[in-house]
Amino acid sequence: MKKTCVALLLIVACAFTASAQKADAILGKWINPSGEGQVLIYKKGDKYYGKLAWMKEPNHANGNPKLDALNPDKALQSRPKLGIELLKDFTFDGDDVYEDGTIYDPKSGKTYSCKMTLKGDVLKIRGYIGISLFGRSENWARVK
C-alpha cells in the first residue's frame, strides 16, 4: 500500500512539473511583426507578464526618450516607453493558451483584454474588447 501511494505521488509530481515546464515555454524575448520592439515575457508567481525590453528607436531625434504620452493616466505620461509592462496577469490554461490577461498599446494609450496562443516559436497575440471576436491579432516571433 505504501509503495502504491509513493508511486502515485511521484506520478502526480512529475505531471505537475511537466505542466509547469510547458507553461514556462512562453518565457523569453519576442519581437513584433514590424520589428520595432521586443517584449520580454517573465513570470511573477503563477502569472505571466511582459515588458517592452527593446525598441528600434527608443529616443526622439533630439536624444530624449520616447514617452508614454498617450497614457490615460496623466501621472504615467512622463515615463519612457522602454521598460513599460505591456502584458499583465496572464494564466496558463494547460493547452498552449495564456488568457485572462491584458495588453497595453502605447501607440494608442489603450488597454485591451488579451489571449495568447503559443505554437512553437510563434506567439499569436489577440487583443480585444468584450469578446475575442472583436479584436486584432498579431504573430510575434521568438528572438533567438
Rank of each mutant, 00 (worst) to 15 (best):
D46W: 06
T17A: 12
I129Q: 13
S113H: 13
Y104S: 03
K144N: 14
G94L: 00
N59L: 05
N62D: 08
K81V: 11
N62L: 01
W140C: 01
E36S: 14
Y42V: 00
L133H: 14
A15N: 12
V97W: 10
Y98F: 10
T17I: 11
F16K: 14
G37K: 02
M1V: 08
L118G: 08
D105S: 03
P106E: 00
R126N: 13
K119M: 11
A61H: 12
P65Q: 06
L67K: 07
N71S: 12
S34K: 12
H60V: 07
D89P: 09
S137Q: 05
V122A: 09
K119C: 14
T91I: 06
F16S: 15
V6Q: 11
K2H: 14
A15S: 10
T102E: 04
L67V: 04
K47D: 06
D96S: 06
K2F: 14
K144F: 03
L9M: 11
R136F: 02
K115H: 05
Y128W: 10
K56T: 05
V12L: 15
Y128I: 03
E57G: 14
L70M: 07
S108C: 04
G130N: 11
I84V: 12
G37H: 02
L8F: 14
S137R: 02
G63V: 03
K29F: 10
T102I: 07
N32R: 03
G35N: 05
D68I: 05
N64V: 12
L133S: 13
G130C: 09
P58E: 09
I125H: 06
L133Q: 15
R142G: 00
G135K: 06
L9A: 15
R79Q: 07
D73W: 02
T17N: 10
L9Q: 10
A25I: 08
L82E: 01
E85I: 07
G130S: 08
I11F: 08
L52H: 02
V122D: 14
G130Y: 08
L10S: 13
R136K: 14
A7I: 07
V143T: 05
G35P: 06
K43M: 10
K43S: 09
L76H: 09
M116T: 11
I129E: 10
D100S: 15
D68W: 04
D89L: 13
A15Q: 10
T4C: 06
G35Q: 09
K29M: 13
K74M: 10
E85S: 14
I41T: 03
G135F: 05
I11Y: 04
L82R: 02
I129H: 12
G63S: 04
Y42Q: 00
G109E: 00
R79P: 01
T17H: 11
G109F: 00
E99R: 15
K43E: 10
L76W: 03
P106W: 00
E138W: 07
D24I: 06
L70T: 04
P58A: 06
P72L: 07
K51N: 06
V122F: 14
Y128M: 05
F16N: 15
K107W: 00
K43N: 08
Q77M: 07
K47C: 03
Y98W: 14
R79N: 09
K66C: 06
